[in-house]
Nucleic acid binder design. Structure first.
Length: 282
DNA sequence: TGAAAGTTTCCTGTTT
DNA sequence: CAAACAGGAAACTTTC
């Protein structure tokens, strides 16, 4: 989750936001601390085990970093000096203050925080039975069309809204049909092509199984075919899945325009009916 | 409860 | 020769 690449990205973004304040000045964390950070976050990060109101500045930092990593939020939008606060101060921030501190990202951060406060960490993991409030749908309708929000966050939003309520998702450039496909199926039962797409967009889960051949054109390569099949099989609770069978399912997508044929082995291309794979486009 | 969509499974033949 | 591709056919699962 908190790999070194992300750290460096995060650090550089911090510098862009506020060159006068370093990461350590902001959060009291040294480079050496990251190793212990990693150990903590590998299993159950400390911030996840306590209520947001009791978070330290350090925990707030961990949460921010988690949100950026997990939902591909643009850290450049976030004014980190605004988040040099403890959990209680964070919880007392209004939605407007989140907006001031992090722009569009602020809305997502506010949404995520409110749901952690209401539902606990199960909101992230999906382990719990509780689901975020339908009020989130109101937030969803306000998202700008070019917000650049990642599919994983969109999925999170959309899967939190029952299909019967999807009618509220009209504005904000978010296609209700698109949300419906997520909302109806959620992460556990998403379609194969959505699983592939989300894997491509999640370097931390990808493990080199898939890689972009031409990001702009939506062309990607299956690097580890059997690993991909195994992962898909795990998702569908089917340990008999093979790449041969998975690829048959992928070939059916040629008919529907979800995928287009590429005359190279193990290479596929997203078609006109696939969505959510483009950069800065949902 | 039936239809439709989306796979899953199996198969034969072809290509790399 | 193995792995991957192509696509037909039928069965199966889930959703509406």
């Amino acid at each position: 989750m908190l790999d070194s690449a992300t750290h460096s990205t995060f650090l550089s973004n911090t510098m862009v936001c506020d060159p006068l304040m370093s990461w350590t000045e902001l959060f009291g964390t040294t480079e050496d601390d990251y190793s212990s950070f990693d150990h903590q976050t590998d299993s159950d990060p400390f911030w996840t085990s306590i209520h947001p109101e009791y978070w330290s500045k350090h925990n707030v930092c961990e949460w921010l970093q988690f949100c950026c990593d997990q939902y591909k939020l643009d850290a450049n939008c976030i004014s980190f000096s605004h988040f040099n606060i403890n959990g209680l101060q964070l919880c007392n921030m209004t939605q407007e203050e989140f907006l001031d501190a992090a722009g569009t990202c602020g809305q997502y951060l506010y949404f995520i925080l409110q749901n952690i406060r209401m539902h606990g960490i199960s909101f992230f993991t999906g382990a719990g039975e509780t689901k975020p409030s339908i009020k989130n749908c109101d937030l969803l309708t306000k998202l700008p069309p070019d917000s650049g929000v990642s599919p994983s966050l969109l999925t999170l939003f959309c899967s939190s809204v029952p299909a019967s309520d999807k009618a509220c998702m009209k504005a904000g450039g978010i296609n209700s049909q698109e949300c419906h496909s997520h909302g109806r199926t959620n992460l556990q039962s998403s379609h194969l092509w959505e699983f592939v797409r989300d894997l491509l967009l999640s370097p931390e889960e990808n493990n080199g199984i898939l890689e972009w051949e031409d990001r702009g054109q939506g062309i990607f390569r299956v690097v580890k075919s059997e690993a991909l099949a195994k992962m898909w099989g795990q998702r569908k609770k089917n340990d008999r899945m093979t790449y041969e069978k998975l690829s048959r399912a992928l070939r059916y997508y040629y008919k529907t325009g979800i995928l287009e044929r590429v005359d190279k082995r193990l290479v596929y291309k997203f078609g006109k009916n696939a969505h959510g794979w483009q950069q800065n486009k949902i």
